[in-house]
Computed example of a mutant assay.
Amino acid sequence: MIRVLFVCLGNICRSPLAEAILNSKVELVGMQSQFKCDSAGTSDFHIGELPDERTIKCASKYNLPLNHRSRQVNRTDFRDFDYILAMDDNNLRNLNNLKIRYGFADKEIHLMRNFVAKTQGMSVPDPYYGGEEGFEEIYQILDEAIDSFLAQVKATHQLYA
């Protein structure tokens, strides 16, 4: 089983949407038994909360079920997940600091948009302080990046639908 963790700051906007997109894509090709997907935040701002209402609205527009309550990244995530995907440089830096503190210095953390050649090194922008258009923008960004990520994972692990 391939275990994937998406990480943003508060775990109410970008990462739960990414989780829902990946879950939908693997279900569409009948590979849901081969993937475990979750999301978390590097901060404790929203622990236990449902995703932002604009995230819920965006997910609903694309028929993506969101079944998540915000949680903070913890030590066992570095042990339990094969892929940890950060939404931006700040969260990447936070995760890299945490992995050292928790004793997982060799764990590779990926920047979400690095799976798309033309957007390597770019962040998934945080839509929290904007309007609904920001959530549509991150949906489009995540949809493309997750397609590329999924293709790479399938090739790396020789998974076939």
Rank of each mutant, 00 (worst) to 15 (best):
N74G: 11
R75H: 14
R93F: 14
K107F: 07
R113Q: 10
I100C: 12
K61H: 10
F81K: 01
T119D: 07
Q120H: 09
A59S: 00
K118R: 15
S70Y: 05
Y83A: 02
A86M: 07
R93A: 10
A117Y: 15
F115K: 05
S60N: 13
N63H: 14
L64F: 05
E53D: 09
D106G: 10
K99Q: 09
I109L: 07
A59Q: 00
G121D: 02
I56A: 09
N91S: 01
S60M: 13
F78Y: 01
K99N: 01
G121L: 03
E108R: 14
L98W: 12
C58K: 02
L95R: 04
M87Q: 07
L111M: 06
T119E: 05
K107S: 06
L95E: 06
A105L: 09
D106H: 08
T55H: 00
N67S: 13
N94T: 12
H68Q: 00
N114Q: 01
H110G: 12
I100T: 14
K61S: 09
L111P: 01
D82I: 06
I100G: 12
A59G: 04
F81L: 06
R101C: 15
R54A: 06
R54K: 03
D80K: 02
Q72Y: 04
V116Q: 01
S60E: 09
E53G: 11
R75F: 14
E108S: 14
A86R: 01
D89W: 14
I56T: 06
R54D: 03
D80M: 05
H110C: 11
I100E: 13
F78K: 05
D80G: 06
H110I: 11
K99D: 02
D77I: 03
A86F: 06
R79V: 13
V116F: 03
V116D: 03
N63L: 14
D89P: 15
D88G: 11
K61F: 12
L98I: 13
H68C: 00
H68D: 00
Q120P: 08
K107Y: 08
S70D: 07
K107P: 08
K99H: 06
